[in-house]
Simulated assay, not measured.
Amino acid sequence: MIDTVFASDVIEFIIDDFIQKYTYESVNEIMSRTFKLLGIDSNKIKFDNKGLIEKKERRNILVHNNLKIDKKYIRITKCEPNRIRKQLEISNDYIIETIELIQGILSQFKNELSIKYSQYNRSQLLRSVWGYVFDSELLKYDDYWNESSSFIFENKKKFDINWLSSGEKTMLAYWIQHYSTGIVDRYFKFEDMNMAVYSMKHMNFLVEFFNKYPFILKHG
């Protein structure tokens, strides 16, 4: 099933289900799993853990107990037991403080992820997809595209596209049409196409890829 055009939908469903389940865990458990999942050193993310715990629990009593302090809130936030059944509030200042706290955490995560995965850029993605889909000496990425992902085959023309098989032509035409339909019209004819290739896993992958990123070849 992972080789079908529905693979990304399945993966996104699994991720959503995972997130929904573990967001009911404690703040410490959520953060611990997040650090592990993203491969980030927890010591590099600084935040008010006690404040984050309180905000999560205040959200819970807002939803489940009309903002009245209950035993669970007292146990988790470690506030004074005599505050039981006290009515809390969510003021504008409290909302702003919560937003700033979360934005601060997310900003740090973003910075760490940018550092850790900086090599996985658009160019690397396109090279990886091309390498997976096309396996031929006549279909080397650098013979067709430069580092700006601009089509350079017309300048180099090391060989004739007619040397490609009908299946290769079909997948190449499908790729190029997301860059320029005019180029497709210059190099390919309908009779060159092999519709049977659409049942192959590599073509299914390519269709799914461009369904997800339809303009990836149009932005340098």
Results as ranks from 00 to 15, higher is better:
V133C: 01
D16S: 14
K36H: 08
S114Q: 13
I216P: 11
I30V: 09
R127L: 12
Q124D: 12
F6S: 09
E97G: 06
N66C: 08
K50N: 11
K116E: 06
F188Q: 05
Y213H: 14
S114H: 07
S8Y: 02
V197W: 00
Y132P: 01
W163R: 13
I19E: 03
E89C: 08
T181D: 10
I96K: 15
V63L: 14
I183Y: 11
E154N: 11
I99C: 07
I53F: 04
N121S: 11
H178I: 05
T23K: 14
I14G: 00
I84V: 06
R122C: 06
Y174E: 04
V184W: 01
N65Q: 12
K50S: 14
E54H: 08
T181M: 12
I161L: 15
S150W: 04
E25G: 02
I152L: 08
N146P: 05
L139A: 01
E89R: 12
G39H: 05
N162L: 08
Y120A: 12
T98W: 08
L37Q: 06
D70G: 07
F18V: 00
N92D: 14
I30C: 03
N155P: 00
S136W: 04
L172R: 02
K44I: 02
T34I: 02
T181W: 03
D142W: 07
M31Y: 04
I69Q: 04
G104M: 06
V10D: 01
F109R: 00
L88E: 15
R122F: 00
L88C: 14
K158I: 10
Y117S: 02
E54K: 14
D9S: 13
K86F: 10
S199I: 07
Y141A: 05
T77R: 00
T4V: 00
K156P: 06
E208H: 05
N121G: 08
F210T: 01
I53N: 06
F205A: 10
I183V: 15
I84K: 06
K86Q: 13
T23M: 14
I76L: 05
S118L: 05
V27H: 03
N211R: 11
K56I: 12
I11S: 09
Y213I: 04
E168V: 07
M1N: 09
G39Y: 07
E54M: 11
Y120E: 13
D160P: 08
L138G: 07
I95C: 09
R59Y: 13
I102P: 03
F205E: 07
K56G: 07
N204F: 01
S123Y: 13
F190Y: 13
K169L: 08
T34H: 01
K140F: 10
R127N: 10
I161P: 06
N92R: 13
W130C: 10
K110T: 11
R83V: 04
E80N: 15
N162Q: 08
H178E: 04
I105F: 11
Q177F: 03
E89Y: 10
S26H: 10
K157M: 15
G167A: 14
L139W: 05
N155I: 09
I216K: 06
E12Q: 11
A173W: 01
Y120P: 09
F205G: 07
L52T: 01
G51P: 03
I11Q: 12
E97M: 08
V63G: 04
F13V: 04
T23I: 15
V207D: 09
I2W: 07
Q87M: 13
P81A: 03
L62K: 13
S42C: 00
A173Y: 01
I105G: 00
D185V: 09
Y24Q: 12
E137T: 10
K156C: 05
